[in-house]
Design a protein around this nucleic acid. Structure first.
Lengths: 134, 134
DNA sequence: TACGATGTGACTAATAGTGTCGAAAAGTGT
DNA sequence: ACACTTTTCGACACTATTAGTCACATCGTA
């Protein structure tokens, strides 16, 4: 298994849920890794499957919760994150993150091996014109 | 379980209570950890669930009660703290702390993994413009 | 005791999130 | 090209959560 690969155009449903492409779903289900952490990054969202998120979190352990600078870095990390879960083959993108990444109906899922990203179609095609389906 | 994550805009009710978001509530209820210690830190409040507070308190034991500098740090910490409890899904923010952190009606709860913070909306958005909802 | 200020519980309407299903679209094998 | 399977899409009804309000309880003080 090669992790998350490829680019998928999907539509959010009326409640902001994205249908997870079958290949992504298989990867998540394989390890019973249905929980994810979604995090705003620049212009798009990064989705960490639970296990992968834990790895990142461990790297933060050196930071002190009582040092202002460290605390700011921790906050930057945690405040932009939120949990979500794949249910009935779909993930609900938390509404605040949806707004921050300016996701409307049309979004793009981009595989990044151990994580995947969620872009608004507009931003994706602006950044990657070669994908634009005329 | 990933601890407190994400950013929630909530309004204090007429008596200064904040509705605890369902995800935070679940974490607190899981360990029957409905008691908390709230502490003024810089510009905002930090909420320690009881268990987490105990851990921090142990760390403070290293400081000497007979060293003036240590004593000052301890005093700074304890004097700005107060207890509170989640009741009917809400926490009453102690009024003295509310004033110190300049909380009005609109506040922001920010997950920090093992603790969470309470900010006034104004200060939060001043410090983190990217969160400003247009 | 009576009063004001503060804290608590209960309720309701509005909003947000969830499960299910069938039709449409995409992909597969012959 | 055709029939068949899998996947995606969108809609709808249903459940959970949230915001806000009101009535009542408690506490300290005069």
């Amino acid at each position: 298994m090669n992790g998350f690969l490829g680019t998928y155009y999907v539509n959010l449903d009326d409640k902001g849920r994205a249908n997870v492409p079958a290949k992504f779903r298989t990867i998540l289900e394989k390890d019973n890794n249905l929980n994810m952490v979604v995090c705003v990054m620049d212009d798009f969202l990064i989705v960490f499957p639970q296990d992968e998120w834990k790895l990142n979190e461990e790297k933060m352990n050196d930071l002190s919760a009582f040092d202002t600078a460290d605390r700011n870095r921790l906050r930057e990390f945690y405040s932009r994150a939120d949990e979500c879960e794949m249910k009935s083959g779909k993930v609900l993108v938390p509404s605040r993150l949806r707004k921050m990444a300016e996701l409307n109906k049309e979004v793009v899922l981009v595989g990044m091996s151990r994580t995947f990203e969620i872009w608004s179609k507009d931003r994706w095609e602006k950044a990657n014109p070669e994908f634009a389906e005329n």
